[in-house]
């Protein structure tokens, strides 16, 4: 069994371009999901009942539908429905955000509801508004508790960008497939891909574990 690594080297800049896009898509979808998901999670916990039910429906639906399906639907079906065509990157960003935000919403809701009610009462007794209480008392504690789960959100987002290759987003996975198809050395190309993704993902989870270990005591009330 011989390995020929030259296709990897020959196409290095092409692949690196893909890697840039992987990182860009990951970053954008993480940020968007965290923003949107946090808002939804807080709305679910503190909002009126009909809103809670609607959000619950959304969150549970995303637990049932694979991200691949959301990606494909957003890219192929949404344009038919709305007439607006989204380029692959933006379709992927929308789809990933919609899917991952549900997960984030659940984390936030669980994190916030794990803070003892007494904390909110104490804040209210001091005359704080809900928003002030959230900002200064509830969220800081909740965020620490949610850190490990957020870490896995980042990990999941990065892994899901690889699925975006299916809707022609030219990220790393997609470009690896292109090179593999052209050079007929799939094993070498994909082995490098495994190494690349591992080198990105492994430190992310380790870093989150480390940060959580340092800050955990701040979240215990």
């Amino acid at each position: 069994m011989e390995f020929d690594w030259s296709p990897v080297l020959d196409n290095a800049s092409f692949l690196l371009g893909g890697l840039e896009l992987t990182l860009a898509l990951s970053l954008c979808s993480v940020v968007m999901s965290l923003l949107v998901g946090t808002a939804i999670g807080l709305l679910r916990h503190y909002g009126p009942r009909p809103l809670q039910l609607a959000i619950a429906f959304y969150v549970d639906s995303m637990r049932a539908i694979p991200v691949l399906v959301v990606l494909v639907w957003t890219y192929f079906a949404l344009p038919i429905l709305t007439g607006a065509v989204l380029p692959p990157f933006w379709a992927a960003l929308v789809a990933l955000t919609v899917h991952i935000a549900a997960y984030v919403a659940e984390i936030v809701r669980a994190g916030v509801s794990s803070i003892r009610k007494g904390q909110l009462w104490a804040a209210s007794a001091l005359g704080m508004s809900l928003w002030q209480a959230l900002r200064t008392v509830i969220l800081p504690q909740a965020v620490v508790r949610m850190l490990p789960a957020f870490g896995s959100v980042i990990s999941i987002a990065i892994k899901d960008t690889a699925i975006a290759s299916v809707i022609a987003v030219p990220e790393y996975m997609n470009r690896s497939q292109t090179v593999a198809g052209q050079t007929f050395h799939p094993i070498e190309i994909f082995t490098v891909a495994v190494a690349v993704y591992f080198l990105i993902l492994f430190p992310v989870t380790r870093l989150v574990d480390f940060v959580y270990g340092r800050l955990a005591h701040l979240g215990r009330s």
Partner: peptide, 22 residues
């Protein structure tokens, strides 16, 4: 454990597809 938790599943699937026959 660390390997398969830190590599996207879709890549594992492609790898399996190309590596297993070899």
């Amino acid at each position: 454990t660390e390997l398969f938790r830190n590599v996207p599943l879709i890549l594992v699937i492609y790898m399996a597809y190309y590596v297993l026959p070899v």
